[in-house]
Simulated scan of single mutants.
Amino acid sequence: MTKIRLQILTPLKKILDEEVESVILRTTEGDMGILYDHEPVVTLLDYNTIQYTQEGVKKVATTMGGFAEITSDRVVVLTDASEFPEEIDEERARQAKERAQKRLADKSMDRIRAEVALKKAITRMNLKGSI
C-alpha cells in the first residue's frame, strides 16, 4: 500500500510528521477517510480525534479545531492543540469539564470561552475512554 505523509502542527510545535497508510479526520461536516491519491481538499476540523494507521497499527490523537489540507500524498493538520492518549491527564480533564460546566451555568461568564473549554475537556476524556 502506498503511504501518505501525515503532519499534525500546532502553533507551539510539530506533533507528528510521519508516513502512514490511512487517516480518518472528524471534520465539521462528518468523518473523512483519506488514502493515497485522495482528491485535493481543504476542510475545517471539529473538536475530536484524528485516527491513522501506521504499519498496520491504529493510532489516535486529539484535534482541537483547525483545518486540514489534503493532497494526493499528504495530509497537513493545523490545529490549536493536539495530544496523544498517553499525554492526557484524566483527572485534570475531568476537573476542566466541571469548571467549564459551572461557567456555562453562570450567565455572567464568557459563554464562548466556556464552550470551547468544555469541548476540549470532553475531547480529551473521550480519547481516554473516561466519558
Rank of each mutant, 00 (worst) to 15 (best):
E69D: 08
V60R: 05
E90T: 13
R74P: 00
Q101I: 08
T53E: 15
I24P: 00
Q7Y: 00
E18K: 08
F67H: 13
S82N: 06
R92M: 13
E39T: 13
I88T: 08
I24M: 14
M32V: 12
V41L: 15
R103P: 00
D37P: 00
G66H: 04
G30A: 14
T2C: 07
P11Y: 05
V20L: 03
R99V: 04
T43C: 13
T49D: 13
R94G: 05
K59T: 01
I70L: 08
T53W: 03
T62V: 08
T27R: 03
T123H: 04
R26Q: 12
L6V: 03
K59W: 00
R103L: 14
D37W: 05
S22N: 09
L12C: 08
M109R: 12
R99P: 05
A114W: 03
M109Q: 15
M109F: 10
A93L: 10
Y36S: 14
Q54W: 02
A81P: 00
E87M: 10
K102I: 02
E18Q: 12
F67D: 11
L6Q: 00
E98W: 01
L45N: 07
R113K: 14
V23Y: 02
K58F: 02
T27W: 08
R5G: 02
R124A: 11
T27C: 07
V60I: 14
F84Y: 13
L9A: 11
Q95I: 12
S22C: 07
E83G: 02
L25V: 07
V41H: 06
R111C: 02
N48W: 11
M32L: 15
T63N: 04
L6T: 04
D80Q: 13
E83I: 03
I34Q: 09
Q51C: 06
H38M: 10
L104P: 00
R74H: 07
V76E: 12
V60S: 09
Q101S: 05
K102Y: 02
Y52P: 02
D46L: 02
V60L: 02
T62N: 07
A100L: 08
D73W: 04
D17N: 13
I24K: 10
L9F: 02
R94M: 15
S72A: 14
R94N: 06
R74I: 05
T123E: 06
L45C: 10
G65Q: 02
L6Y: 00
S72H: 12
D31A: 15
Q101C: 01
E90M: 10
M1V: 06
K102G: 02
K102N: 12
K120M: 12
V75M: 11
K58C: 03
I24R: 10
Q7E: 15
A117R: 03
G30K: 07
Q54I: 09
K128G: 03
A96L: 10
L45I: 01
S22D: 12
L45P: 00
K97C: 10
K119Q: 14
A81Y: 01
I131P: 00
T2W: 05
R94H: 05
V20S: 02
P11I: 09
